[in-house]
Computed example of a mutant assay.
Amino acid sequence: MANKTSQHILSTSANLLGFCLFIITSLHLTNRSENSLIDEFTSIVALSLTISSALSFFSIRTENHILEIKLEKIADYFFMASLLGIFVIIVFITFKFWLK
C-alpha cells in the first residue's frame, strides 16, 4: 500500500462534508437560504468533498499501482479545491454577520 494521503483525505473530507451539510441545514432552518448564495456554494463544496472521498476510497482499494497514484492525486486536487471553497464560505458568513 503505497499511498500516503488517501486515508487522511477520506476521513477528513467525510468530516468536512458533515460541516457543509450542517451549514446547509442551518441556513434552511433559519429561513436565510432564499436570499443567500452561501448554500449554493456550500452544495458545490459538498459535492467536491464527496468526489474526493470516493476517489480516495477507490485509491485505497485498487490493486493497480499506477491507478492508485492517479486516483490519489485527483482526490488531493478535489480536496484542496474544497478547502479553498470552505475558506470562501467562512469569509462570506463572517462578512454577512459582520455587516448585519
Rank of each mutant, 00 (worst) to 15 (best):
A2H: 11
N3D: 03
N3K: 07
K4W: 10
K4R: 08
T5C: 05
S6K: 01
H8R: 06
H8M: 11
I9Y: 03
L10G: 05
L10E: 00
S11Q: 13
S11T: 13
N15H: 14
F19W: 02
F19Y: 06
L21P: 09
F22N: 07
I24W: 02
T25I: 13
S26T: 15
L27N: 12
L27R: 12
H28N: 13
H28R: 14
H28S: 10
T30C: 02
T30L: 03
R32N: 05
R32H: 03
R32K: 06
S33T: 11
E34D: 14
N35C: 15
N35S: 15
L37Q: 14
I38P: 07
I38Q: 05
I38G: 06
E40G: 00
E40W: 00
E40H: 04
F41H: 07
F41I: 06
F41M: 00
T42F: 08
T42A: 08
S43Q: 08
V45Y: 01
V45I: 01
A46F: 06
L47M: 05
S48A: 08
T50Q: 03
T50A: 06
S52C: 04
S52Y: 03
S53F: 02
A54R: 11
A54Q: 09
A54F: 05
A54D: 09
A54V: 05
L55V: 01
S56E: 02
S56Y: 05
F57T: 02
F57C: 08
F58S: 11
S59W: 02
S59D: 02
S59I: 02
I60W: 06
I60Y: 00
R61W: 04
R61G: 07
T62E: 01
H65T: 15
H65R: 13
I66W: 08
L67D: 01
L67R: 06
E68Q: 07
I69T: 12
E72A: 10
K73R: 15
I74C: 11
I74W: 10
I74Y: 12
A75S: 09
A75I: 07
D76L: 12
Y77E: 14
F78E: 04
F78M: 06
M80F: 15
A81W: 10
S82K: 05
S82Q: 05
L84R: 10
G85L: 03
G85D: 00
F87M: 12
F87I: 14
I90M: 14
F92L: 13
F92W: 09
F95Q: 14
F95H: 12
F95S: 14
K96C: 11
K96G: 11
W98P: 14
W98C: 14
